[in-house]
Computed example of a mutant assay.
Amino acid sequence: MEARREKKKTCGTICLKYLLFLFNICFWLAGGAVLAVGVWTLVDKSDYISLLNSSFYSASAYILIAAGAIVIVTGLIGCCGTLKEKRSLLIVYLVLLLCIFLLEITAGVLAYVNYKECFPFCHQLDRELRQNLKLTMQQKYQQPGQESITQSVDKLQQEFKCCGSQNFSDWTDSEWIQNAQNQQLVPDSCCKTPSDLCGRRDHPSNIYRVEGGCIEKLEDFIQSQLYILGAVGIGIAFLQLVGMMFTCCLCRNLKEDLY
């Protein structure tokens, strides 16, 4: 009878061990995906995000990268503790999971509170960002020493299929258009089929005339990134609760097996 109970207890420990190991693999992969999204945003999209002259949006990419790295490290500790059946490593893993979970809850509460407090000023902030982008495009495009801004604007207009900050007519007041000797009306990157000096015609058949201009396209992209950040946070938080439950059970079973 005693041997049967010991065998049953050992089988339960083995099942928990492999369940927790499988969980850690999923947790590790989730961290890798989060890290990849953050790096992709920072490397591929940072050029035109920087046009807004605001660190708020680029901060979301750094948060994704940091969160992904922490999840990967935590997952590796969990895998090592599970495979070697080291209660000390499992306790460290449990504490890390708990700390990350509490940080996520705190960050979510602070974000909600700050959003409620700043809500009356959000439209003012939005107008300032729109104005910043418009001035950057009008004053720095094709100007000496502003090659990176020029490339970012061209990339923004081509990738999002838009022209101007809010409208193609924004380019009328730009320093480059006013000083140009080639009678350009808009940059060549506004054209649906870019070619040299194609920006001399601003007819709808030739250039993009998207309602709201590039700023709305850019804001939609940034909003989607923030949604991804929120969804990832909720998903990881759920995984952490499952992981903490498995870890507690495995630690208890290992302690019982030891005695």
Rank of each mutant, 00 (worst) to 15 (best):
Q151G: 11
D154I: 01
P204V: 03
S205T: 03
R200K: 15
D170I: 01
K192E: 00
Q157T: 05
S174P: 00
E175M: 08
F160N: 09
V210R: 15
S152D: 01
Q181G: 08
D188Y: 04
C190P: 15
V186N: 09
N206V: 09
D202V: 02
D170Q: 06
W176Q: 01
S189Q: 05
C190L: 10
A180C: 11
L185S: 07
N179A: 13
F168M: 00
R201F: 13
G164W: 02
C190I: 06
D170L: 04
Q184V: 04
R201T: 12
Q166F: 12
T172N: 13
T172D: 09
D202K: 12
S152M: 04
S165A: 14
N182C: 04
N182K: 14
P187N: 01
K161S: 14
Q157M: 14
G164A: 11
S165W: 06
N167L: 08
S152W: 07
C163Y: 00
Y208E: 03
V186I: 11
S174Q: 00
W176R: 01
W171A: 03
S205D: 15
C190M: 10
E159T: 06
S195Q: 13
D173K: 01
K161F: 10
Q157D: 06
N167R: 11
K155H: 10
T193P: 06
F160T: 07
N206M: 08
T150C: 09
C163S: 05
V153G: 07
N167E: 10
S169D: 09
G199F: 06
Q158A: 09
D173L: 02
N206A: 09
S152G: 12
S174F: 03
R201C: 11
T150A: 03
K161L: 05
V210Q: 15
Q166M: 14
H203V: 01
